[in-house]
Design a protein around this nucleic acid. Structure first.
Lengths: 255, 255
DNA sequence: ACCAGAGTTCGACAATGTCGACCGGCATAC
DNA sequence: GTATGCCGGTCGACATTGTCGAACTCTGGT
């Protein structure tokens, strides 16, 4: 196949760098990180600035992400079929379970949150749409791993980052967990991402039965796992049911 | 100055086209819209696909925005200084006024919503962060216009799009309105964007006193304009006060 | 006042992306 | 069932285009 356009790849690399670096970066730092000449990096940055993808802090001369990206990002939400089909079911699930609902899709070895319904009762919660969560420490991620052999194979054998003292960090333990997920049809995490919080997730299938995302509820451990430290089967059933309804809307056939 | 990088500009144009087009587009349509050869458009699209900025629908072969953009967009929120300084004050304003709060910044002849606090009482509201609102029909936009001569000059003399039957569509009427905004120090719109809804907005100033954004409350007309169809001065004062606090945090000097 | 480091500019080279014609499917029309 | 258009994808030659690296300027610190 004919070559991809290098300058665009480089521009994308710069944007990702700025997103990861969580702050402003200078031309020199960017050029060094990507192995480019300073002048080259500058030219790309100036172009990105012209289209509004990056902004320059006039005081320090450093660069950061630009406002246009926010608009493009939310425009993505409008065309995302998974999200638009799932919204109604997510609201219903939140109402029935009384917990916050997330919908996630795999992105580059992480889980991207594409929808978030606040827990019905109190409304002082931060919005997590657009956030990237690790695959191995969240119920959403475990579901995606369990039904995507490719993603599972790409996981490192060790060195999984522990978010809490309960995070699974060994590949063997995770593998057992994934087998259990496939057997039960849903995944759970109990204080593996955040202390005091648990989640239950189920797979969403698209056309052809392929798993394209997952839906989960998240809340306090004692509500999701009443006694015994195992997820409440009624709640798990609700999540699975919501996932099935969404899958049906997506044309997933008889799954 | 040395030329900007064309391929990046073209890639950005494609992304904007996809964001505007609100749906999937084919290679041919994109190439025609931008005056490019089909092969060229294809190469750029394939590169954008490689970096996750666009996705291809396998069934139809058409392209749409990609998930990576969502993550980049929300990463922008993390580094946006206006938003991060304003969040606490926005929460306080929402609590005191009992209304939904927006924070907006100018972007390319529109208002970009960078923060949104739900109305405290009921929580069944859609999230508008990332949305682009017109300048002439919203309180946020009027504030930005009133204090940015350049943006005001760029407005068309006529042909302002009417969103409701109360939207100001003549340049003269808008001009008078902006003069009033400058005099009072805040802007209002009463059913000019959505029937039954009103807003009150005040300018946020950054370093040097420059207006960098605006904050507003939005709610039912009878709550914001109790009798007489004019905005409640107490609520307007609250909005102005929040704007001043944020401006101070941004280092706006004595404004 | 000097120096160090930042972002920015400049010009030449050739690597790079662009163009336009060509292929292969799929769907529709006849 | 065949023909036909449409659409996405491919390929190779040309020259436009982006890249490099050195030189410039300005700010801030010493």
């Amino acid at each position: 196949m004919p070559g991809p356009v290098q300058s665009i790849e480089r521009a994308a690399a710069i944007l990702r760098l700025l997103a990861r670096g969580s702050g402003r970066l200078g031309v020199g730092e960017i050029a060094a990180s990507l192995g480019l000449a300073k002048g080259t990096a500058h030219g790309i940055l100036r172009t990105l600035q012209g289209v509004g993808f990056v902004e320059q802090d006039k005081a320090s001369g450093k660069y950061q992400l630009g406002a246009t990206l926010l608009h493009l990002g939310t425009s993505y939400l409008d065309v995302n079929e998974l999200r638009s089909r799932a919204i109604n079911w997510a609201d219903a699930l939140a109402a029935r379970s009384g917990e916050a609902v997330w919908i996630g899709t795999p992105l580059d070895g992480k889980v991207l949150i594409v929808h978030h319904v606040f827990r019905p009762d109190d409304s002082l919660q931060s919005l997590d749409v657009g956030a990237l969560l690790p695959l191995h420490a969240t119920a959403l991620g475990k579901v995606l791993l369990a039904y995507d052999a490719q993603a599972a194979a790409a996981l490192p054998e060790s060195g999984l980052e522990p978010l809490t003292r309960r995070t699974l960090v060994s590949a063997a333990a995770l593998k057992r967990e994934l087998a259990k997920v496939r057997e039960l049809g849903f995944a759970a995490d109990v204080e593996e991402a955040t202390l005091g919080q648990a989640s239950i997730a189920a797979p969403i299938r698209g056309y052809g039965g392929l798993v394209v995302g997952a839906i989960s509820i998240t809340g306090a451990v004692d509500r999701l796992c009443p006694a015994s430290g195992r997820p409440d089967p009624v709640l798990a059933g609700s999540v699975q049911n919501a996932a099935q309804m969404i899958s049906r809307d997506l044309g997933a056939g008889r799954w």
